[in-house]
Amino acid sequence: MGKKTIRVSDFSGRVLQPDDEATRVVVLEHPDLVAGPVQLDATPAEVESIDDAALDVAIVEIHDSHGGGDPRRVVLTASEFDAMATDTPMAQLLRTADRVRPPKTRRAAEKIDYGSIEHAGRPHRGRVTEEEARLVRERLDEVNKRLADSGVRQIDPADPEHAARYGFPTPD
């Protein structure tokens, strides 16, 4: 018995033919998004209007005493943000403002064991050990739930890259 993979547009439900081009849309932020970024498949025609509908926005973090000291992330139109600068034009302020450097990350003194169920399947640059691949194959639902809960991409056995990395059978 063989398997047949049928690709469909997540937007319209339209079946994509083998020679149809598919466009991958990664949703980074959305009010209904609960477990981190997700990807959707669409046809190029379905997403060609996205650029036209795009808004010019400013995304800012407000660091104050509200929210227990954690910064608040706010999205507003660029024109609303620009209007807040009343003395000097916002474009000039942004050119001359102090740069924010990302915080330095400390390397963990302890090496992460991706061959354990707590870390198996997490994205990493190193080689996937047979133990990690076995855990991912045998406990895929558990691994994907943990990855989703931590906002990390999930493993899709139908994805050729994931299939090769974790030893899933590839469709012929």
Rank of each mutant, 00 (worst) to 15 (best):
A163N: 00
S49Y: 08
E118F: 05
D141I: 04
E131G: 03
A54D: 00
I112R: 11
P89C: 08
K104F: 00
Q17L: 13
L93W: 03
H124A: 09
R95V: 08
I59L: 03
M90D: 02
T77C: 03
G69T: 01
T105R: 12
Q92W: 01
V34K: 15
A54M: 12
L94G: 05
F168G: 00
V100C: 02
P102K: 11
K104S: 14
E48L: 03
F81H: 02
D64I: 04
E48Y: 05
D149E: 15
R107G: 14
E61A: 13
F168D: 01
R101D: 13
D82H: 14
S79G: 04
G2Y: 12
T43S: 14
R99Q: 13
V26A: 10
D20I: 02
D141K: 10
V136S: 08
P157E: 11
A83N: 04
A85T: 06
T77H: 05
E48I: 07
Q154P: 03
L40D: 08
I117E: 07
R153W: 04
A83K: 06
P157D: 09
L135A: 05
H124K: 06
L33R: 02
R139Y: 10
G2P: 08
T77W: 00
S116L: 08
R106C: 00
V26F: 01
V8A: 12
T77G: 11
E110K: 13
P31G: 03
V152D: 13
V75T: 12
G151E: 05
L93Q: 12
E48P: 00
E161K: 15
G13M: 07
D149A: 15
F11I: 13
I112P: 01
H63T: 04
F81E: 04
D19K: 12
L40M: 14
L147S: 00
R72T: 12
L76T: 14
E142G: 08
V136N: 04
G69F: 03
R165D: 09
R7I: 11
A120W: 02
P123M: 09
F81I: 01
